[in-house]
Simulated scan of single mutants.
Amino acid sequence: MAEYTSRKMFEWTEKLESDVLRLKNEEKMTYAAIAKHIGTTSNSVKHKVRRLQQAKGLEKYSHPKEKAELALPILESIRVRKGKPLRTLETHCGFGGMSRVYSQFGSVLGFDIVQDRIDACEASCEQFEGIKQDSEHQLLNLRFEKRKFDIVDVDPYGLPSRYFPHIFGLIDDGYLFLTFPMMGVAQINALTIKHYQVFWGIELSDKDEYIQKIVERLADYAYIEKKKITVEKVIKVDRIYRFVIKVEKIALTKLLGMRINRANS
């Protein structure tokens, strides 16, 4: 086995990721043993292995059944109410677990940074268009083009923070399905702590108020895009929360309960 403990500064590489998966899955080494072998921490190895397994689209980590059961009643109701095929955006199409569900109700635009995942979705999903692109960057193009969707699914491998507030600009009358990891799924270090504080107003001591803090900040982000949101449901699946959020375009005066006396204006 290659030795990595002589590294002065630890850095993940494709070869190192492959070796770690092999050590964990084939040689059944513990996280602590792998960490000692490659010269990093047990937590770092644990988070990396989970992230790599998620990227492979394993159901243990992607939870397609639970996500589909949550989405189907809403998709049915929106299609009936609007009386036309739905337009769906997936920021991370993965291997198409939810793409196949969404494509039953209309057109699906999906992003991924791995071409093999896009190819898999296009081969198995009707009405699916895939683009190999970083969705955080492509999102700004969609906003510039004034694209609108009935359903937006933000399902990243980590924290979804950088999709806000802009993602709300893509929905005038529809739903956002949002995946948010439990506190601690993302490795806790100084960067993570600051990230929670800046994007979500969350401190590590806020575990009991975690969902409430997220909902409050989502409402603030929606306000920036002149939208009203209603968080209709939050379910916990393994180590993630799945939010169902109704999004409506609304005048800010109405949202704030203001009355404008035009006779005196």
Rank of each mutant, 00 (worst) to 15 (best):
P73V: 08
V101Y: 01
K132P: 09
A120V: 07
P156R: 09
S42K: 10
G158P: 07
Y157I: 15
D112F: 07
Q115K: 09
L140F: 14
L139F: 00
A71C: 08
S62G: 00
L139R: 09
I118R: 03
A55R: 15
V49M: 03
Q127G: 06
S124A: 00
Q53L: 15
T40Q: 05
V152A: 14
A71S: 03
S103D: 11
E59Y: 07
L142R: 06
F111A: 05
H63V: 09
S124P: 04
I151S: 03
T30M: 10
S42L: 07
L52E: 05
T88G: 14
D119L: 06
P160E: 05
T88H: 13
I38V: 15
P160F: 10
D112H: 12
E129T: 00
Q133Y: 10
Q115G: 01
A123S: 10
A71G: 04
E76K: 05
S103V: 07
S44W: 11
C93K: 11
S77C: 05
F111G: 07
D134W: 15
Q138H: 02
Q138I: 00
S77N: 12
E76N: 03
E145L: 05
C93L: 11
R81L: 12
I74D: 02
E76P: 05
Y31Q: 01
D112R: 12
R50H: 15
I118D: 03
K36F: 00
A71E: 01
E90R: 14
G83D: 12
C121T: 02
R50A: 14
K56W: 09
R143K: 15
S124E: 00
E129M: 00
R100E: 04
Q133M: 03
E126W: 12
C121I: 04
G106E: 09
R79D: 06
G130A: 01
G39K: 02
E59P: 14
E90D: 14
